[in-house]
Write a protein that binds this DNA or RNA. Structure first.
Length: 398
DNA sequence: TCTCTCACG
DNA sequence: ACGTACGTGAGAGAC
């Protein structure tokens, strides 16, 4: 793996300066407008980027919430969830949320990435760390290329600035579909969930049909949304409280959904209790490939501390097995590219996605190599699906 | 250097 | 009564 990562780091990625420079100006203008509006609505100039000052303005001057909560250091909480709850009745809060989003984009990505370009190569060279994440995932720093925006319209603009090395190349991106849910199906051998993947169903729709006892065609968008939240929450050991918070529904309703979920997927319930028992007796848990995560707090007398360790015990084999799988795929793809003397290069890894810089004439050669190696990295019963695309920038390739 | 916030899977 | 979903890295402010 070291050799693969070294080659990726040396290779680096090309950034389109002009796109980012232009975007930075646009953001600066928009941020300036938002600042002005916020000052007018607040009746005072202050540093919006300071959580301390912002909390005082919102909760002492404007009295937006008499029951505003404070952090353990005595500051008002001004996190996104807090502000979103106030946004419905206060347009200054909506402006502040917009300000935050744009400020983050500008300072963390749009202005910072060009400064990371290497003088000699003209490219950005991240570091991939193999021994940071406790689950076996990689991490990336200087700069972090594993958290480039994608969820919002304006965030996606940043991805357009990640481009091939020249006009003779194209970016190819391949990502695993629902890899963690496939792995929990594989590890738990739950018949119902395996069946959904074997039939290549939309897993969240299939889960909704199971949980609500209806046919696939009858599933509403709300039911699918609820099922999706449970599918994700389960991977992390989420409680009824947590599910009710994330969906904005009563705790009783969340508890019913979870009960139905475990009734439909008894193998997953079994996996969770087996894994916790294993951890209690052995002090560690294992991935499919035998990687261990030690859990020193698994038998702690402190329920909160123990709860954290228990959720780690459930999550680590899932997240860690997915990490093992993509690493094996990377080694095999790297080896095959070398053997065939290809000019295509692997340039980025984002947990379930690989990105390549490929000469046009090699695109149709590398696609099957990438697909086969990603799908077959580890022998599984559950089918593993990979989506692949190409384009003139990272957003288009995705 | 710590805290808070927020970007990603 | 308490806390409540896992894994990261980075920027800005405050001290």
């Amino acid at each position: 793996m070291i050799y693969v990562l070294a080659d990726m780091e040396y290779e680096g990625v090309l950034i389109d300066h002009e796109t980012l420079k232009e975007f930075s100006k646009v953001l600066e203008t928009d941020i300036g407008k938002l600042e002005k509006t916020v000052y007018e609505k607040a009746g005072v100039r202050f540093n919006i980027a300071s959580p301390k000052q912002l909390g005082e303005v919102l909760f002492e001057k404007l009295m937006l919430d008499p029951k505003a909560k404070k952090t353990k250091t005595g500051q008002y909480q001004t996190g996104e969830d807090v502000l979103l709850a106030l946004a419905a009745k206060s347009d200054i809060v909506r402006d502040i949320l917009d300000f935050r989003q744009l400020q983050k984009l500008k300072s963390t990505y749009v202005d910072a990435l060009p400064l990371m370009v290497n003088r000699k190569t003209g490219r950005v060279h991240t570091s991939y760390n193999q021994a940071v994440a406790a689950t076996g995932r990689l991490s990336s720093n200087n700069p972090n290329l594993q958290n480039i925006p994608i969820r919002t319209e304006r965030g996606r603009e940043v991805r357009k600035a990640f481009i091939p090395r020249d006009s003779g190349h194209t970016l190819v991106s391949a990502d695993y579909s629902q890899i963690e849910l496939r792995i929990i199906a594989e590890i738990s051998k739950d018949a119902n969930m395996m069946d959904a993947f074997v039939k290549n169903l939309d897993i969240h729709t299939a889960t909704a049909a199971n949980v609500y006892g209806i046919s696939l065609e009858e599933v509403t968008s709300t039911q699918r949304r609820n099922a999706k939240a449970v599918n994700f929450g389960i991977i992390y050991g989420q409680s009824a409280f947590g599910l009710s918070q994330s969906l904005g529904i009563p705790r009783k309703e969340a508890a019913d959904i979870i009960d139905n979920y475990f009734a439909q997927y008894p193998g997953i319930k079994q996996y969770m209790s087996d894994t916790m028992n294993f951890a209690r007796e052995n002090g560690y848990v294992c991935t499919l490939m035998g990687r261990r995560r030690y859990l020193r707090d698994i038998n702690s007398a402190n329920a909160t501390v123990r709860g954290f360790a228990e959720r780690n015990a459930i999550n680590a084999p899932i997240q860690g097995s997915a990490a093992d799988m993509i690493k094996i795929a990377m080694i095999n793809i790297h080896r095959e590219f070398k053997a065939l003397n290809l000019d295509a290069r692997m340039t980025m890894q984002v947990h379930d996605e690989l990105v390549f810089d490929v000469p046009h004439h090699e695109v149709e050669i590398v696609k099957p190599i990438i697909l086969e190696n990603m799908k077959n990295a580890i022998k599984t019963t559950v089918p593993i699906m990979v989506e692949i695309g190409s384009g003139v920038n990272w957003l288009e390739a995705h």
